[in-house]
Design a protein around this nucleic acid. Structure first.
Lengths: 151, 151
DNA sequence: TCTTGACCTAAAGTTAGGTTTAGAAATTAC
DNA sequence: GTAATTTCTAAACCTAACTTTAGGTCAAGA
């Protein structure tokens, strides 16, 4: 009845297009912090719509959830974020994106070198810079040796 | 003793830097096809070093294993690939990479629009083009609504 | 020959990012 | 007031790309 009892999780899901289960999962990952009503149900602020939108955008950019949590920590905790607050963290998002683009372009240049010589030998290829992680994620060690195949 | 009994899996692992378990896994995924010696152990050709190098490079570019299998199918099956063969499929790899870079740059432009207005509203943002999949993978539906948050 | 060390298979475990299921409690609608 | 939704928690399941484990076999060297 009161004007601001907050949004139920289903309503937030509708507004953002996320699944209810995903929103709960994001909470478990520390990306969003609803309060609980008398009955123990989650209630969200309107500003959380924007917060989740930001999460989705950052995901499109290839950030992991921990990385997104990190970026979101740049928002003020004590008040509703202003447009300027959002703008600031969007800028930090943009620098992430710039880095990814840079990396890919360097990989491309390296590949071009390889195509030029036709040898596909590791010392000359992109792979020889294993720290260039264009790869999304994945577990386990994948170390590289600089080994030139001899045929 | 014979000159070409082929490489054992451990030797191939050393030459490529891959784990033995990963090489077996790639075989299960149809990326490489060793033969077996009398004792049932896997034996590889020297050209397989290059083949696995290619797999690793393609992974850096963000291709999935099925995609890589697809690209590798462009190699001749009946003979050892020549430098020209490798060059040809490297070119196909490059076009994959170009696409990814394109997508990211478009996302960046969209984000810049958002930063400019400071609103982070979905209709104007990158996310409003959910088909731009810069995202690596991930399961489940993540549909988007064009919904402008009103605070 | 005997003993390492490398290799074999099959199955289970791992991480990220979620979804699905089950059974119960809270809300909403009529 | 009762029925239909929604929400709750916990745990299991899912895919990709592997690794680890368990129990057994093969190969190389002293």
């Amino acid at each position: 009845m009161a004007v601001s009892e907050g949004l139920a999780i289903g309503a937030l899901a509708q507004r953002t297009g996320l699944a209810v289960s995903a929103i709960r999962y994001y909470e478990a990952q520390g990306l969003i912090s609803p309060w609980r009503n008398a009955g123990g149900q989650r209630r969200y602020q309107r500003a959380d719509i924007r917060r989740l939108s930001f999460v989705m955008i950052a995901q499109q950019f290839g950030l992991t959830l921990p990385e997104i949590r990190e970026v979101l920590s740049g928002l003020p905790g004590n008040r509703t974020p202003t447009p300027k607050d959002w703008k600031d963290i969007s800028v930090s998002l943009r620098s992430h994106l710039d880095q990814r683009i840079d990396t890919l372009m360097r990989l491309r240049d390296n590949l071009d070198g390889c195509i030029g010589c036709g040898c596909l030998s590791l010392p000359k290829c992109a792979l020889y810079n294993p720290d260039d992680r264009a790869k999304s994620h994945g577990s386990g060690p994948r170390y590289l040796l600089g080994d030139a195949p001899e045929a």
